[in-house]
Amino acid sequence: MPERVLTVSPERLDGWLAGFAQRHGATTHRAGPDVVVVEAADGAVASCAVPFPPLENDDTEQPYDGLIAHATRERRIAVLLVRRGGYAAGVFAGTRLVASKVGSRHVQGRTAAGGQSQQRFARRREKQTREAFEAAADVAARVLLPHVAGLDAVVTGGDRAAVDHVLADRRLTALATLRDRTRNAPHLAVPDPKLAVLEATPATFRAVRITLSEPDVAP
């Protein structure tokens, strides 16, 4: 059966699962700490990645109530977005942004020039990049670290190498450790980190990712 991956907001998950059963027949499910697998009568399968696992239990009277309650729970999440020349750090309580800072530093683009001019340009660009990452680390330390004891998870986005460089700052060890322990969280693909981009991230990091396999329908 062909597979496709889709994302569903926690608030829509109950309706999506009900629609899955309506389309494919009676369902059964297996709940694990990281994934809930829903199988339908016609062979369709929906594997729901548990957001911010583990799912501690699913011992509820109604199917999927445990997953839905887990997905809709309000969590305190730190978000760090870094791209070359731009950065954003924020703390969310559920979908509400409670602390944030965004900024940018000029980093020159690439050039086709050669010789000594190219070497000078490369050194200047390297210095600008280093200063931009240092500024991003300063902001992460100022905005995120005061909340670290109460965080449920750290979510990152933008350029992976840039994020890793920033989190390598010794001040941010606690954030880096929590990021590495955050299972099933996507690395967010974002444009230049502006405030509006940061504010929109809960729609992605809270979403339930579902791998859907459906039987081919004969013409």
Rank of each mutant, 00 (worst) to 15 (best):
F121E: 15
D164G: 04
K194N: 03
V163D: 06
L17T: 00
V38F: 07
Q119K: 15
R75A: 10
T182A: 10
T7Q: 14
G94L: 08
V8K: 11
H24M: 14
K127F: 03
H106I: 07
A21K: 09
R84Q: 13
W16K: 09
A71K: 10
R84C: 07
G158V: 03
A132N: 09
R124G: 15
V166L: 04
R123C: 05
L145S: 07
T95L: 06
L145F: 04
L80G: 02
E3T: 12
E134Q: 13
G85H: 00
A88C: 10
L97H: 04
V148H: 11
R73E: 15
T204H: 05
H106R: 14
S104H: 08
T182I: 03
H24I: 12
G94K: 08
D216I: 03
R12Y: 04
A26Q: 15
A140D: 00
G115Y: 03
D152G: 08
A99M: 04
W16V: 11
P202N: 09
P54I: 07
V155K: 01
D152R: 07
G25V: 07
V91Q: 00
V217C: 13
T7A: 13
T182H: 06
T211Q: 10
A40R: 02
A200N: 06
C48H: 00
Q108W: 05
R83K: 07
P215E: 14
F205N: 00
G150A: 13
A112E: 10
H187E: 12
T211S: 15
G66H: 09
V143T: 12
G32V: 02
F52M: 12
A141I: 01
V163G: 06
H147E: 12
I77L: 11
V98G: 06
V139R: 03
D14Q: 11
L151G: 11
L13C: 01
R23Y: 01
G66A: 08
V217Q: 15
